[in-house]
Design a protein around this nucleic acid. Sequence first.
DNA 1: GCAAAACTGTTTACCTGATTAACAATACAC
DNA 2: GTGTATTGTTAATCAGGTAAACAGTTTTGC
Lengths: 159, 159
Amino acid sequence: MAPRTVTKSLEFEMTDVVSDLETLVGYNMKRAYVAIQKDFRAALGEGGLSPRTFSALSLVVAHPNISQSDLARMLGIERSGLVAIIDDLEARKFLSRTLVPGDRRVQALVPTKAGIAAYGATLVTVQAHEDRLLADLSTSEKDTLMQLLMKIRLTDRES
Amino acid sequence: MAPRTVTKSLEFEMTDVVSDLETLVGYNMKRAYVAIQKDFRAALGEGGLSPRTFSALSLVVAHPNISQSDLARMLGIERSGLVAIIDDLEARKFLSRTLVPGDRRVQALVPTKAGIAAYGATLVTVQAHEDRLLADLSTSEKDTLMQLLMKIRLTDRES
DNA sequence: GCAAAACTGTTTACCTGATTAACAATACAC
DNA sequence: GTGTATTGTTAATCAGGTAAACAGTTTTGC
């Protein structure tokens, strides 16, 4: 079956590999992640939302009345860690904690009009930042990257 | 030119996209990075090297007699932040700070035999962790991922 | 020659993001 | 009803990182 395909020449490319480090996915993932985050913060500027706060706001806008516990689960963080994030968003008047009739434990998170507007504007800025930073990647490369990242991300499901 | 290619069906796939968040590279990059790092730590266990300490050791083994300043530059961190990492590696007797004849400011980092051995063993463990975690990705997918991450990473050069 | 500038390793103070453990209030199982 | 589970919260702690200052040591520019 397919006896003599020549694949050897693809195994190594002659870019000078500085050390084994360069061949590890984790190391390159970290460096790429740091570069993106740095540019994200620069794009949103002083007083702008941090990546995690933006993520939380995004999910609250997409899922109004979500509880903090559910939001924490979606973000993959502990609910104790979410408190400060929600405090921040509430201080900015982007959402409010509101009582839920049926269950007095939970406080549903509802975005304000200002919150929805701010989210929309910020999303545009964030998308512009990604378009700029990833200008060297073609659309199909970006698609591929997203698929691969998603695959790796979902590895973490069971924990 | 190419008047009616049907690309529309590729634009959106019918996985339920929870929010805009899922469409952002940065968010998925972070989630994937967190998943990998978590698995890395689990693979190396209690008392094992942290990712950043492993990275530093890798570069010292690959470049014996490197200075701390050069190492910090390679890692993309401040040299003040490197001190604790080198302290750790020196405490484990994996390297030593040694005087350099020509310049009394620098202390060259030289790996010990134990350091080189530990690095080799750890590298095998790390590679096994990545192979396991990324088992769902084909070899060519891994290659593609590395190329794309490298491209993004190099965006950060000028800073 | 020598003053000014630059570089090296280091400490200190601080920041961000995150976790764990505990807690009071509330709801649910049966 | 009693025991168990869940919610939001605080407090303590940690990991990783930055920025500013510092003493000691070259290097540069005349």
